[in-house]
Design a protein around this nucleic acid. Structure first.
Lengths: 208, 208, 208, 208
DNA sequence: GATGAATGAGTTTTCATTCAT
DNA sequence: GATGAATGAAAACTCATTCAT
């Protein structure tokens, strides 16, 4: 039997933290950092304001924790997806598919996430944005780029550019097309079929 | 024919508006919407706070005007660049080159711009973000996509995807690579040579 | 005609400052620093809270200004009184008389003042207490002690102790007796007749 | 005769109370009533906050108990010192000596004590200050004044003032000079030699 | 009896906006 | 038309006190 069971106390605390973060996520993603007050979060989470401060040093800390947690969730889902296959082409498909899922299942958070990665994050004093950008860059560098690298070694892919550049390119594709989908889900079916996105890259990439 | 000359009054007003927007731009791009006060802007622009409200309905309006103005500047520069050539390949090069220039010359504003286009714009209640996204989409749709369209008609390009999709793809490339440059200007030389960016797309695109 | 007239604006501002300080003085002296809120002061002074912050950086600053101002008023009154005579014995009488007046006319502030000079001032982070103690020490050192010094030189006084020590002694007398009066005004008539206080010191001091 | 031994229970409780008061004393004397939280005291005393409320009704009560206890300790030490001799002159010396000791050995608490006796005690709603002032007045009235009274009867002292007035005078001397010592211990050696303080009073007091 | 998590009233401070001058 | 003093709602955060375990 597994031993890493938490005490009831600890489990309860974790649950409460969860509930606070969920409430905060809901509100932040709907109204943005500066338009959500701690009282609002407390009310939504059904706690007293003071309780929030037992879990998080201050508003900034709460927000950071939230963003880091969500980012990690996203990144991990993507990493897992890529590792779910041995075949490089399939790995790329999985990558696109996983990103699509993340977009689809987290519609409301995704804009928040992009504010911190692509946009101007003036919400928190600490370089939260930079830290998350770096975390994500690691995904590109250590997970996606190697797929291209291996594919090239196996002569599956033409070396039309450096692996890291291709990683950046594919990722940017996904973001761009998925944002289109975000805007008008009906007209842009990229979420259904990863190949729509991959095709453009593959034309030059695939060794005939 | 009446020259569309403005009265001294009008010119003065426009100048003042200009100065307010410049001050606001400087401050917003440095500290973000919520960390800049109207007093700060007034002081920087050397006007009284009350005066700001003669030109802009409120803080939101001032911010919107600023973003719209900057966006238009960016978009116009890009459109002009594309129209600077007759040749489709050259037009794509100009596109990339123009985007690079915009990034390079507006480093501080560019993040602000992306907050409103890619990230989560919670600064203003009105759908400023949506409006700007649409404006930019028009650039892709009416300026960049036709380049691909014409190139295909002329058999310069393979029809590896729909023109609009290619436009989105190329644009996302530019953004992604230019962001890398933003992060570490020294290691990422994309700004100097547009072909680094174009190459990936061209591999499959160019008719052999 | 005198030229140091202030503009109407400046006079008004000074008046407002005055009104704020008066309200604050009333409340602080009645309830103490920590038991008075900025809202309370604002209400009493009939201003909006925000206005208080136009005049004072923060609560601490408001309090400091108040205490420094009152202390200076007290000190100046005492200094002026001593300088009001040429005769050393009369100067000592004036000193006691002036202290009595200060106590009598500022009953409510006097405790506040002593909190900062004798007691433990934890109200303000800056060493306000030390600064005021030093200011007062200057009064003893530069105003009262010289009276004893001169009196000794003129053979009016016996040198029963160092001038500064006598200054400290006389002052402590005054405080002690005046506090008794503060406690039970009716039974302790020290305020009326300075000689009651001076007598004890004079017994040994006066050259027969 | 029943030995007034306490049960183990009671002794334990007293010990705990002691530890709480010690922790509180340390913190209050360092930071002042309003800058110390109950949690801080609980932590320092190594109890849960709730436990503090078993011993003291509330923060105010805890503070009052502390001040009263300390005051009594001071007063008793002084009373005992005076009673340590039969000779009136020696009794006055003992008084000064005992006050010096109290100051020297309780440097950190002494300011707190004076806040409650001389300054403005706004910490507690109840008239703690008044009650302590009265207790101390009893020391002057019932212990120190009688020394002067007896000395006068024995013709040791001149009747230069009423005994109670002399008591107040001597006490105020001590306080004033000991505060000087508190400020600058090196330059003011009053603690070493009680006669430095007594001399001024003695000049007129002592029957030649 | 002891604990310490939870509470929420109350505090200081900021800042967009107005309007008398 | 320009000014900037005045406003007061609203925010983040603290902490004495309670009470279920």
């Amino acid at each position: 039997m597994q031993k890493n069971r938490l005490s009831r106390r600890e489990r309860e605390r974790l649950n409460q933290r969860r509930e606070i973060l969920d409430a905060a996520l809901f509100l932040f993603s709907k109204k943005g950092y500066h338009n959500v007050s701690m009282h609002e979060i407390a009310k939504k989470a059904e706690f007293a304001v003071g309780t929030l401060y037992k879990f998080f040093k201050n508003k900034e800390d709460l927000y950071s924790s939230l963003i880091v947690e969500q980012s990690d969730k996203f990144h991990n889902a993507i990493i897992a997806a890529v590792r779910g296959s041995e075949n490089e082409v399939e790995q790329l498909r999985n990558y696109v598919r996983a990103k699509s899922m993340v977009f689809r299942d987290n519609v409301d958070v995704i804009r928040l996430y992009f504010t911190e990665t692509r946009g101007a994050s003036f919400n928190v004093r600490t370089g939260l944005d930079k830290s998350i950008r770096q975390r994500y860059n690691n995904v590109l560098l250590n997970v996606l780029a190697p797929v291209f690298e291996r594919g090239m070694k196996k002569k599956l892919f033409n070396r039309i550019a450096e692996p890291y550049q291709l990683a950046v390119a594919l990722d940017s594709f996904c973001n761009a097309f998925l944002f289109l989908w975000l805007e008008e889900p009906d007209q842009n079916p990229y979420i259904e079929d990863p190949d729509i996105i991959l095709n453009i890259l593959f034309q030059g990439l695939m060794a005939s």
